[in-house]
Design a protein around this nucleic acid. Structure first.
Length: 360
RNA sequence: UGGGCCGUCGUCAAGCGGUAAGACACAGCACUUUGACUGCUGCAUUCAUAGGUUCAAAUCCUAUCGGCCCAG
């Protein structure tokens, strides 16, 4: 009997091609599009087109219809609000810089959607992510591996996947190049073949996340002082949530050299500014860890690591600390290590694991 | 009130008679399934104001306004 797979279809090219590929390969495919929020809930009253819009749902449905398989729309709005949007707001309220995409993958796609899929008697789910999975008989563990198209590799946002989730997930695009996917979409005559890649935070309009936090989520954010490394006041900031470590644009202050956000202090409501060289650090601590290629980190391990999505990995030594946190020591100083963001570890193409940065 | 200095883009700042450098800020675009970084492009027909000298002035002269310093 054919394996039943539910494909998470965003309405974009990638997931559409993923579905088409699985169908071709003989899987019994159905599609699912997630309704994650209503426009009114995120402060949009006009017909602005963003992620999860009606058009996206219809794109997905039309692709499914064309390929001849079932298509579901799941309303995960309340979960999305609780697990992703609220987390996002809380993170900023605490001076961190969260990554909502990772939370969405972790708490929605690979948990809630997977559960729903299994409930509907599917064997697994599939997404259009560029990544690969592989069962390693030697260790008895499921591995998450980088995509063939390294320029599109998305393992960074998938590091939180559990063994159970990996065992029930297919990434049909892992062995393809983005350019090949576009061509396949054209050949299949998919309506979204030329649709631009998604970007920016899906639930925030026009990239104005600070406005979203203040106006929709009502995160308090008072004006305060910009200070230099010595504590001298340099000017006024618009509220700490407007800034993240390493940020240069939007400070509105002019100096001989460009200045960057070096630190944020919620207690004093100050934002510390400094030159480029003040941003580098050689170590960080991380918590909320998830391990993939290993069961647990019990002793120091040499890995490569990256602290943001589009970044070249550098070698680092990770070692366990007390209470479930770890210390990451880089060979080369890293720029703008930011609390709240994820640090992901690799061993060649394998994702070793990752966690949330606690301190830079 | 005498004496001296200075007023060039939002900020800092070149220019010193030949037809407005640069940096920072800012904006747009590119990059990007987070926030950032980065890259590219744009950004003073005008040099405090008003006259004058000159073929030609931000650059010289005069006056006015504004700021600074020393002397009182």
């Amino acid at each position: 009997m054919a394996t039943k797979v539910m494909v998470a279809m965003s309405g974009g090219v990638d997931s559409s091609v993923a579905a088409a590929l699985l169908k071709e390969q003989g899987y019994e495919v159905c599609g699912a599009t997630l309704k994650l929020f209503a426009n009114e809930d995120i402060g949009i009253t006009d017909r602005t087109r963003i992620c999860c819009s009606l058009e996206d749902v219809e794109d997905a449905r039309s692709v499914a219809y064309k390929m001849g398989f079932e298509h579901f729309v799941f309303n995960f709005g309340s979960h999305f609000e609780r697990e992703v949007i609220t987390r996002f707001a809380r993170g900023y309220a605490h001076g961190q810089t969260p990554n909502p995409c990772i939370d969405c993958n972790r708490y929605i796609k690979f948990s809630l959607l997977l559960q729903r899929a299994l409930l509907l008697e599917n064997d697994c789910i599939a997404t259009g992510h560029y990544a690969r999975t592989e069962y390693d008989a030697a260790s008895g563990r499921w591995l998450l591996k980088k995509a063939k198209d390294t320029s599109k590799d998305q393992t960074y946002v998938l590091y939180a996947m559990t063994q159970e989730e990996l065992a029930h997930t297919l990434f049909p695009l892992g062995g393809l190049l983005k350019s090949e996917v576009r061509v396949m979409a054209q050949e299949q005559g998919l309506i979204n073949a030329r649709k631009p890649d998604s970007q920016d935070i899906c639930f925030v309009k026009d990239g104005d996340y600070a406005g979203f936090l203040e106006n929709v989520m009502e995160v308090p954010s008072a004006e305060g002082d910009f200070i230099d490394m010595q504590g001298n006041v340099l000017g006024q900031h618009k509220g700490i949530i407007h800034y993240t470590i390493g940020q240069r644009k939007g400070l509105g202050l002019s100096f001989e050299m460009p200045h960057y956000v070096v630190a944020k202090d919620m207690q004093t409501n100050t934002v510390t500014l400094g030159g480029q060289d003040a941003l580098f650090s050689t170590s960080l601590t991380a918590g909320d860890l998830n391990w993939i290629s290993i069961e647990e980190l019990t002793e120091p391990m040499q890995v490569t690591a990256k602290t943001r999505y589009k970044q070249q990995e550098t070698s680092a030594l990770i070692r366990p600390l007390e209470n479930g946190t770890i210390l990451v020591e880089f060979d080369q100083p890293q720029r703008a290590v930011t609390p709240g963001q994820a640090v992901v570890f690799y061993d060649g193409d394998n994702v070793v694991g990752g966690g949330t940065i606690l301190q830079g």
